[in-house]
Design a protein around this nucleic acid. Sequence first.
DNA 1: AATGAAAACAACCGCGCGGTG
DNA 2: TCACCGCGCGGTTGTTTTCAT
Length: 336
Amino acid sequence: MSSSLEEYSRPSLLLFCIYRSVIPCAFFHSSLHPFLSQSPRVEEKRRDMGRPPCCEKIDVKKGPWTPEEDIILVTYIQEHGPGNWRSVPTNTGLLRCSKSCRLRWTNYLRPGIKRGNFTDHEEKLIVHLQTLLGNRWAAIASYLPERTDNDIKNYWNTHLKKKLKKVEIGCSDSINVAKFSKGQWERRLQTDIGMAKKALSDALSFDPAQDNNINQQKQRPTILSPLSSSSSSAVYASSAENISRLLKNWMQKPLSSNNTVSVNTTANSSSCEVKPDSLQEGILEFDSSPSATTEISDASFFQEETPLSMLETWLFDESFCPQVDISSIEDTHGLF
DNA sequence: AATGAAAACAACCGCGCGGTG
DNA sequence: TCACCGCGCGGTTGTTTTCAT
C-alpha cells in the first residue's frame, strides 16, 4: 500500500486515538475486552500445535488488540510508514508477532477502510468477482479499495454463501451450470497462462510499424498493484483488467457529469482519496481532514473502451465456453 | 429473564512466493 | 543453486453478540 502518511497528520491521529479509546461501540468491541489475552486452554492448545512461532518472542501476545496497542502501532506507522513488519514489535515494544501487527494495520487500522454493511452494489460486485476469480480475496478486494480482503472473505462466508445456497435450492440447474463455467474458466486461465504470457511478450516486443492497437495496449497501465509485481502476476493483472471490463455492463449506473462517485469514510478520522492517476497505479492518498469524502473516478476504470487483446478475445469467446448470465439468474430468482 | 443456537467478525496459522546474500 | 527472510494470501478458529425459544 502506498499511502501518503505525511498527510496522516497528528491532529487526526489524536482524534483517532480519542475516538477509538472513548467510544464504546460494537466497532471496537474486540479492543475493549476486559481480559485481553485468550483463555489458557486456547493458548495451551496453540502451543501444542507443533510448529515453532513465526516470531522469536516466546511470550508473544495473542488475542484482541487493546486501544493502547493500536495507538502504539498507528503512531509507529505514522512515523515510519507501513512495511518492515519484522522490526515493528522490536521497535515499538509491542508483544505482538510481526504478522499480527501487519494484519491489524491492513485489516483494521489502515486509513480509508470502510466498515459496516455492504451495499447492494458491493454485494453484487463481490458475487460476480467471486464467480470469475474464485476465492482470490485479495484480487477481489482490489476492486473494492475501501474493503479489506478479510472483510470480504468474512462477508462471503457469512452472508453471500447462504444467499447463493438459497438460490441454489430454487434453481439448482442454473447454478450447476454456473459452477461448471467457473471451474472451466479457472482451468482455462491456469492452463493457458503460457498463451497469455506469449501474448504479453508479443505486445511488449512489438514492431512499431505494426498494429496501432497493440501499441495502445502496451501503454495501457496495469492496475491492481498487488498483482503487478512479477511477470506471472502481470499476466494476471491483465486478466483482472479484462474482468473489470467484463463487469462494466452490469456495473453501469447513472454517473454525474464529472463521472465521479463520492463515498463517505467514517470509520476513523482519515479518509481516502482515490485519484484517477493514482487509481491506475494502485496508489491511494489519504486526506487527514475528518470530513473529507472519497472521490473515485470510476469512469476510466470501468467504462474505458479499449481494443481487445488476444487474451481478452479469448475470454470473451462464448462459443469456447458456455457462459451463464449471472445477472439474469439474480433477477429471475430474486437474489438481491 | 434465562439459555442455547446461530451469526458475525477479529485474529491466527500454515503455506507459498519473491528477494537477497 | 540454495537457504533464509519477510511478506501476503486463503483457510480456519475462537470469542462475542444477537436472535429465538
